[in-house]
Amino acid sequence: MESEFCNVALDRIRYSLVWEDSHTLYRALAIRPTDHVLVVASAGCNALNALLKKPRQVTAIDLNPVQIQLVQLKLHIIQYHEHGVLRGILGLAGPEAVAAAWQQLALTLPVPERGYWEAFFRVHPPGLLAAGRLESYLTGFLSTLAPAVQRKVRRLIQFKSVAVQYAYFTQVLEATSFREQFIEYFDEVNLSKGRDPRLFRYAEESGGEAFYNRLRETLSTELVRDNFFFRFFFFGSENLPESLLPPCYQAQHYEVLRQQLPKLTLVTGEAVEFLCCPAGQDVTKASLSNIFEYTSSTEFQRIAHRLFAAGGRPLRVVYWNLLQDQGAVTPQTPTPLPVDTVVSESLSGQEACFYFRNVRVLDSRLAGSSSVITKRVVHHE
């Protein structure tokens, strides 16, 4: 696949958290025991979440070998340590717990890995979840606000009514400098601190304005105190309830996860190429994160038709759009794609992480049918 991601340095952890929600993953793919699931590895969250559905096999793939190394560390912890060590090393219990967890983890790591991660945690004492290039950038926003505005932002996770929450946001928080500072912090120039600027080559929208409008919409439709991604976006791993964590990091699923680990294979490579190679012909479900954000619309169409040629193998794919609208039906679309319209629209309206534009599900069983998907509508007052 011709992707701008192939042109950036893959020498550090770019993502220490998977921002594509597990509930969206589950509803989009309906993972069954007979499935071989391909997942873009990233920080490993959704590869582990897929394992919890007990499929036949999960393959986690990533171009970045450092992301694969991160997933390997999590697998080692799950296999050889109790849940408290994983919780500690993630940073969910504070820096002191990270240090204590590392002391236990270091005893079981092979020497080469031990040296690498020892140096890593010296630089990142808050733990894994906040260590990615994107995550350190996102969670740095709150501290740029005046203390009084920070306190107002924190109030957003104290409401029990969406109507009261939204009224507070529009009447109190928007009366401050919050909107202006949010848009400026997340505009294309500053956003490159979290993602390489080359990854915005095909962006159709301005980051700051688009993300702010999506945030505003979310605040008008759901209680953000119960939204893991909202809370982490603004406050990091601070005071996160166990019940809001991705399923793979919750204590109640730990033993099942450990039992399912032998089904997981890690591959360093490109997801689309894997799907098209002999080893990938066995894949029946695939979660492709937002990898099409980094390709042209022409390249996306080429890939989609390659994967979903009429009479091809059974395949269901979910992917997320951020600042592009890949998969939209336009006059330039040569052939309608096999979009599961009902599921895609439903997931786009309920996506847990507010900053995504929409979610698309493609299914080979729909190849040749007339499929139309409407993009997520953002209402403004």
Rank of each mutant, 00 (worst) to 15 (best):
R313N: 05
Q301C: 03
S364Q: 05
P338K: 13
G327E: 09
N358W: 00
V361F: 05
R316K: 12
F308L: 13
F300A: 14
L307P: 14
V339E: 08
P331R: 07
W320P: 02
L307R: 15
S297W: 13
A352F: 01
V361Q: 06
E351A: 01
V342L: 09
D340R: 12
R306V: 04
N321G: 03
A310M: 14
I303T: 14
D363Q: 08
T341Q: 14
I303V: 15
Q332M: 10
L323G: 02
N321F: 01
G312V: 09
Q301L: 04
D325Y: 06
R316I: 06
R360H: 06
F356V: 00
A310H: 12
T298H: 13
T330I: 15
T330G: 15
T335I: 04
D325K: 08
R313E: 04
D363M: 08
P331F: 06
Q350C: 09
A304T: 10
V317W: 05
S346L: 09
V343S: 08
T298D: 12
L307G: 13
Q324E: 10
D363I: 02
N321E: 01
F356E: 00
S346K: 12
D363N: 10
F356R: 01
R316C: 06
L322P: 03
T298S: 14
E351K: 00
C353H: 11
L362H: 07
A352Q: 11
G312S: 13
R302T: 09
E345Y: 03
N321A: 03
G349M: 07
H305L: 06
E351L: 01
S364D: 02
A310G: 09
H305F: 05
L337H: 01
N321V: 01
C353P: 02
V329C: 09
Y355H: 15
F356Q: 00
T333H: 15
V339T: 10
L307Y: 15
T341P: 09
E351S: 01
F356S: 00
D325R: 08
S344K: 00
Q324I: 07
H305P: 02
P338H: 13
L337K: 00
Q350D: 10
S297L: 14
C353Y: 10
L337A: 01
D340A: 12
Q350S: 11
I303Y: 14
T298Y: 10
P334F: 09
P338V: 03
F354D: 03
P331A: 08
R313L: 07
R313Q: 07
F356T: 00
F300M: 12
T335Y: 06
R306W: 08
R302S: 13
R360K: 11
T330L: 15
V318P: 10
V359G: 05
N321M: 02
R360L: 11
S344A: 07
L322Q: 10
R316Q: 09
V342I: 08
L315N: 06
H305V: 02
S297D: 12
L323C: 02
P338M: 14
R360E: 03
P331I: 04
P331S: 07
D340N: 11
S344L: 02
Y355D: 01
R357S: 01
P314D: 06
L307V: 13
Q350H: 11
W320V: 11
R313W: 05
P336E: 13
G312K: 13
A328E: 12
G327F: 04
C353I: 03
R360W: 06
L347D: 04
D340W: 10
Y355Q: 14
L322C: 05
G312C: 13
V342G: 05
S297F: 14
Q350I: 05
F308H: 13
